[in-house]
Amino acid sequence: MSEVADVRTTPLRRVLAVLALFVAGGAGGGVLWERLWQAPTGLAFEGRWYLEPAGPDVSFQAIALFVVISFPLGLVLALLSGMWRGHETATLVSVVVGAGVAAFVMYAVGHALGPGDPQVLAAGQPDYTPLPADLGLTAPDPGRVAWHSSALLALPAGAMTGLVATYLLGSRGLERRPRG
C-alpha cells in the first residue's frame, strides 16, 4: 500500500500539477485583463495611428492593470502550490517556471482577445478614423514590441512572495509528517 501512496506524490506529478495550475491561472488572468481593460482610442492619419489624447496616463493603463491582476494571481497560485507539503524543491522549481509561463500565457491570451494592431489597421483607413489601441505591455509607439516589458515579472514576483510566505509563515513550516 505504501507503493501506491508514493506513486501519487512523485515529484513529477507535483511539477505537472503545479505547471497546469499556473497555465490555467495565466489563461484566466489574461481573460480578466482583457475584460477589465478599456481600450483608449486613437486616430488614423496619413496611414498611421496616433493615440488621442496622447499621454503616459492613457498608454500606461494596460500595463498597470496587468500588474494589478498578475501579482495577486501569482501570490494565490503559489499559496495553493505551497500548501501541498512534500517535494518542496520540485514545488519551488515548478512555481518559478510555471510563474514565468503563466505571465506569458496571461499576456498572450489578453493580447489575442483584445483589438488588433492599430498601426496595421490605420494603413487602409481614411484620415481621422477612430481606432482602438491594442492590448500590450508597452506604450503604443511605432516599432515597439508589445511584450517587451518588466511588467511580465509581476506574476513571478507574486508567486515567489506567496511561496516564501507559505513556507516561512505556514503553521507547519517545512515539517514532514512522521511516516510509519
Rank of each mutant, 00 (worst) to 15 (best):
V4N: 09
A5M: 13
D6R: 15
V7M: 10
T9N: 15
T10Y: 05
P11H: 13
R14K: 13
L16N: 06
L21K: 05
F22H: 07
G26C: 10
A27T: 12
G30C: 04
V31R: 12
V31P: 04
L32M: 06
P40I: 10
G42D: 06
F45P: 11
G47R: 14
G47C: 08
R48G: 09
R48Q: 15
W49T: 02
L51R: 07
L51M: 10
E52W: 14
D57I: 13
D57K: 09
D57S: 14
S59K: 08
A62Q: 04
I63L: 06
L77F: 02
G86W: 09
A90N: 08
L92R: 12
V95C: 13
G100P: 04
A102W: 02
A108M: 14
V109W: 01
A112R: 15
A123T: 12
G124W: 05
Q125W: 08
P126I: 03
P126H: 05
D127N: 11
P130N: 05
P130A: 14
L131R: 10
A133F: 04
T138F: 03
P140H: 08
P140V: 07
P142C: 00
G143N: 06
R144D: 09
R144M: 10
H148I: 10
H148L: 14
H148F: 13
S150W: 10
L152S: 02
G158Y: 00
L163E: 01
L163W: 04
L168D: 04
G173A: 14
L174D: 11
R177C: 00
R179T: 14
